[in-house]
Design a protein around this nucleic acid. Structure first.
Lengths: 275, 275
DNA sequence: CACTATTTGTCCGTATGTATG
DNA sequence: TCATACATACGGACAAATAGT
């Protein structure tokens, strides 16, 4: 059996520091604040700080030099994250050469929770088809999807269909064409269930995306609650100003992000033609 | 001085359950799983579950009936969150009748972290103007903003200017017109510093938005790292399918979200004209 | 009206993480 | 780094309340 409780505070400090390193806020070679300073900042004791630093050191993320301080070793983890355009309802992945897979965790018809029922404009007794899926890249899970579809629509495809084709595609095949969608983005902590499904710890931050897709008549077809691992998946979007003089007119462009721009660091040519 | 450490596991369970109630997954009147079942699901002891439930009960979110179970009291907290369109670079708030305020936490010129330096395409020795701001609605903080502007641009306005006008506006006044922008959305845990600035606990989930704004020549003007409280702020966006038959063509629409659609729950009229 | 199963309420001792010096 | 004191978490046991048979 599990012995007892893990060092939670130390772990939290460890995660926060690790994040600062990964995000580049603490670059390679930088010296961390002293243990005492860290202890004060995080409102914990020095012992806890030491444990966190030892954890980092054991992963070779920092180097402890006695009498001097603790220094950052690697600039960032370079854990290549998957980029996806938030403007794309199919949430297609932009990075190439990656194999994405789907694992169907559950599939049944249920009385949806109030929030879903309202979003799908279902009658109080109407049921919905609930499917829980996990998406994987290179065999590693990065998103947890809970989808609700009105029963009258979900009837048209089976459990096996869902394990293969994207849900929206199945819905379209059933004769319901998506015309518009609404998305809300938030953040949540990983619950034990999704933590296991996504192969992460409990209490880690996840990007939460709630989406409702409507057909041409404006009737809701699908409700999706997606959770993404931020270390493996990044939602991104590009904006372009449309109205020349108007201040507040920025339109999202669905165009694919060109990674070279940031990578090559070549001086930008003046007088670039924007189209 | 502070006595000791807070119950972390209990608190986490408390937060997760609270979220399930707020999200409507657990509706009013619903009976929670038994304490033993919860203990198993969350992989903690029953005592810890009891602490979490007691916390919820103390807030009157649940009602404990001995011998029977624990029941949800309120349907959801109805803590009205601020809606903002993610497509809007100015991050204008959509909810009306709300007063938003800005508090300037710090303002100085620094050697930017590597990640920022790269994004702003600065030379290794070039400095940037770093400003940390907190945005408030009705006096309550909801976002934490760390902005970097190349020194040559930032020179044109002062600390006082920043406390009053939006940063992008100041940049434009300085003669630099924004033309495009790139945003990435992620999720992080609240660090002690931002936790205090946002008046929340440490280790809570936050929406993280990283944005780089470019001028007409494609040169970066501003780097922003924004953190949002998900309970007070919701990023949203609307999408519309553009290409008639093409599957993968959904364009984000910058139009303001019409709240009535979800609120009134009126049956959708057939043959609605979409424009 | 039992009888029983389940669930909350309360207590214990123990192990371990954490704060403090 | 070590030692002490305390808070948290664990696992178990048992009583009391509830609901169904």
């Amino acid at each position: 059996m599990r012995a007892a409780s893990e060092p939670l505070k130390a772990r939290r400090v460890y995660l926060l520091l690790k994040d600062k390193i990964a995000s580049g806020e603490l670059a390679a070679g930088d010296r961390l604040p002293g243990e005492f300073a860290l202890a004060q900042a995080h409102n914990v004791s020095r012992v806890t700080i030491r444990q966190a630093l030892d954890l980092l050191a054991s992963e070779d993320l920092v180097q402890k030099r006695s009498g001097s301080g603790t220094y950052v070793r690697r600039p960032s983890q370079k854990v290549r994250t998957v980029l996806a355009d938030v403007a794309n309802v199919f949430a297609h992945l932009i990075e190439m050469g990656r194999t994405t897979d789907v694992r169907l965790l559950s599939f049944d018809y249920v009385n949806p929770p109030e929030q879903v029922r309202e979003a799908l404009e279902l009658a109080p007794d109407e049921r919905s088809q609930r499917s829980v899926r996990v998406r994987l890249v290179d065999g590693v899970p990065f998103s947890h999807l809970v989808a609700h579809v009105p029963e009258r629509i979900g009837r048209n495809f089976s459990r096996d269909d869902l394990a293969k084709a994207p849900l929206l595609e199945l819905i379209e095949r059933a004769g319901h064409k998506g015309a518009s969608a609404r998305q809300e983005i938030s953040a949540v902590l990983s619950s034990p269930e999704v933590a296991e499904a996504l192969d992460i710890g409990v209490g880690l931050p996840l990007v939460a995306l709630r989406r409702v897709v409507y057909d041409q008549a404006g009737r809701p077809m699908e409700h999706l609650q997606a959770l993404y691992r931020p270390d493996r998946y990044t939602l991104q979007m590009n904006l372009a100003r449309t109205g020349d003089e108007g201040h507040r007119h920025w339109s999202p462009t669905a165009e694919v992000y060109r990674r070279e721009r940031l990578r090559r660091r070549q001086p930008v040519r003046k007088k670039v033609k924007l189209k």
